[in-house]
């Protein structure tokens, strides 16, 4: 059914899900929600599948006319969401009615917010995913960011995971302590990268002991960082290999780049480290001008953290009341 008409598209609003898996050997990256944590929490609050497609909005949110009654959740960055110009809460399901106007105001914290809709946004699957990959003009709404007058469809209640979450009238919400804290995440955990050995011990130490500022040249492809340059002592060219989300590349000027959702599948710059999966959303929510620093952890630790997060998701999935969750 029709759900949104775009009155103002905002800065960069795209349809995203958890990405296109299985096509990197063809040079096609997964794309998908930059803050996969908020995205999944939001969907679970609606009783949706975790991968149900939603809208990712960036800094300046869109203005959307609601075309049918439904439930929505706003998750991720606090971009001052409003319904008919009145402030509405985040991280809670909101009933919206035909003719309502969903809008956003001043960015309060974070960079990317998600509009999740009961049943998920309905656009054609391209290679098994609804994620927009703008560079290749595939997925999402005609392979591009939303524009004025676009009309967006949703699945309605079809994609719901459980009937009981739908039939209960109780508004689902999540306690403040379980919502992602967007302000306190300047320390990002990483695993050493495959080309760490191309750097001297002093340079590696510098990487872990410095603070890097996020440059304004940061987007869904990658975050450029500014700070202590990481110069390689050996000038051997490396052979192009696979890169992944969170790979921290160091080009010859020594200023690291953190690769994000719309990266390439391969790259020729040495990777000094790689952000662990559960910390990617923290990078995605940082703003240009804010800082980041890096802390080394083991693969085992990264997997433990991922397992913890999965447990939280599956508890939410079976519909246990959200306020019983402690902060993770």
């Amino acid at each position: 059914m029709k759900i949104f008409e775009v009155i103002d598209p905002g800065l960069h609003t795209t349809v995203q899900d958890l990405g296109r898996i299985g096509y990197q050997k063809y040079g096609i990256v997964p794309a998908g929600a930059m803050d996969d944590y908020s995205f999944q929490l939001g969907n679970l609050l609606l009783g949706n599948e975790r991968h149900a497609a939603g809208l990712e909005i960036t800094m300046l949110g869109p203005t959307l006319r609601i075309l049918n009654d439904t439930e929505i959740v706003i998750a991720g960055a606090n971009l001052s969401p409003t319904l008919n110009k009145q402030p509405i809460p985040m991280w809670t399901s909101i009933h919206v009615s035909k003719g309502d106007e969903l809008g956003f105001g001043k960015p309060q914290s974070g960079t990317r917010a998600y509009i999740l809709v009961e049943g998920g946004i309905d656009v054609p699957d391209v290679m098994g995913s609804k994620a927009t990959y703008v560079k290749a003009q595939i997925g999402g709404y005609e392979g591009r960011a939303l524009q004025v007058k676009d009309v967006i469809q949703c699945h309605g209640s079809v994609a719901r995971i459980t009937e009981n979450s739908m039939t209960s009238n109780r508004r689902k919400t999540i306690s403040f302590s379980a919502t992602p804290n967007l302000e306190m995440n300047s320390v990002i955990r990483v695993i050493p990268g495959p080309q760490e050995s191309m750097f001297s011990e002093e340079t590696i130490e510098k990487f872990y002991n410095s603070t890097y500022k996020i440059s304004t040249q940061s987007d869904r492809m990658g975050y450029r960082l500014e700070g202590e340059p990481l110069i390689r002592h050996n000038s051997n060219e490396m052979i192009t290999d696979a890169v992944t989300e969170g790979s921290i590349q160091v080009p010859s000027d020594g200023q690291p780049i953190v690769l994000m959702a719309d990266r390439q599948t391969s790259g020729g710059y040495p990777k000094i480290a790689n952000v662990i999966s559960v910390d990617l959303w923290k990078v995605a929510q940082r703003l240009p001008g804010q800082s980041l620093s890096f802390k080394k952890v083991s693969v085992t630790k990264a997997h433990d953290e991922l397992r913890k997060r999965e447990q939280l998701f599956s508890q939410l999935h079976v519909g246990v009341t959200a306020h019983t969750f402690s902060k993770i």
Partner: peptide, 8 residues
């Protein structure tokens, strides 16, 4: 490892 979901 290449990150926590990749093996190279």
């Amino acid at each position: 490892p290449l990150g926590d979901k990749g093996i190279r």
